[in-house]
Simulated scan of single mutants.
Amino acid sequence: MTDAAANMTDCANTQHSLERYLGNTIRELRLKHGLTIAEVAEQIGISRGMLSKIENAQTATSLETLAKLANALGVSLSTLFRNYNMPAGGAQHIKQGQGMEVVRRGTKRGHTYHLLAYDQGPTKLFEPFLITMDDASEVFPTFEHPGTEFIYMLEGTIEYRHGQHTYLLESGDSLTFRGDIPHGPEKLLELPIRFLAIIYYTMPFGSIS
Rank of each mutant, 00 (worst) to 15 (best):
Y84N: 07
Y118S: 15
G34E: 01
R27D: 08
D10K: 15
T9D: 15
D134M: 09
A41W: 00
A72I: 02
T2D: 13
T148K: 06
N7D: 14
T202S: 13
I208L: 14
G97P: 00
N83F: 09
S76T: 12
I44N: 00
Q120R: 14
F143Q: 08
F126K: 01
H114Y: 11
I151G: 00
H162G: 00
G49E: 10
A197C: 14
G106T: 02
T112K: 08
R105D: 11
L80K: 05
L63W: 14
G121E: 08
P141N: 03
G90M: 06
K53H: 14
N7L: 14
Q15H: 12
N13P: 08
E19W: 13
Y160V: 00
A91Q: 13
F177P: 00
S76Y: 09
Y167L: 03
S137L: 10
D119K: 14
H183A: 02
L80N: 01
Q98H: 10
D173V: 03
L125T: 11
I54E: 01
H145A: 01
R109H: 15
F177E: 01
A88P: 10
K124G: 09
Q98D: 08
K124F: 08
T61E: 07
T9C: 12
R27Y: 12
A4Y: 10
P192F: 07
G89N: 06
A60W: 12
L189I: 12
T176C: 11
L189D: 07
L51R: 03
T132H: 13
D3L: 12
H111I: 12
P146C: 04
M203S: 15
S207K: 14
L191S: 05
A197R: 09
G49C: 09
G23T: 04
G23N: 02
G184D: 07
D119R: 14
T142P: 01
D134E: 09
D3E: 15
V75Q: 02
L191Q: 06
Y21L: 07
M153S: 03
A41D: 02
P146I: 01
F81M: 07
I208H: 13
G163F: 05
P141T: 04
H114G: 06
K32G: 11
A4L: 13
H16N: 13
P87T: 03
E39W: 09
F126T: 06
V75P: 00
A38I: 12
V40I: 07
Q43S: 10
F129Q: 01
T65E: 06
P204V: 02
G23F: 01
P204M: 04
R105V: 13
K95R: 15
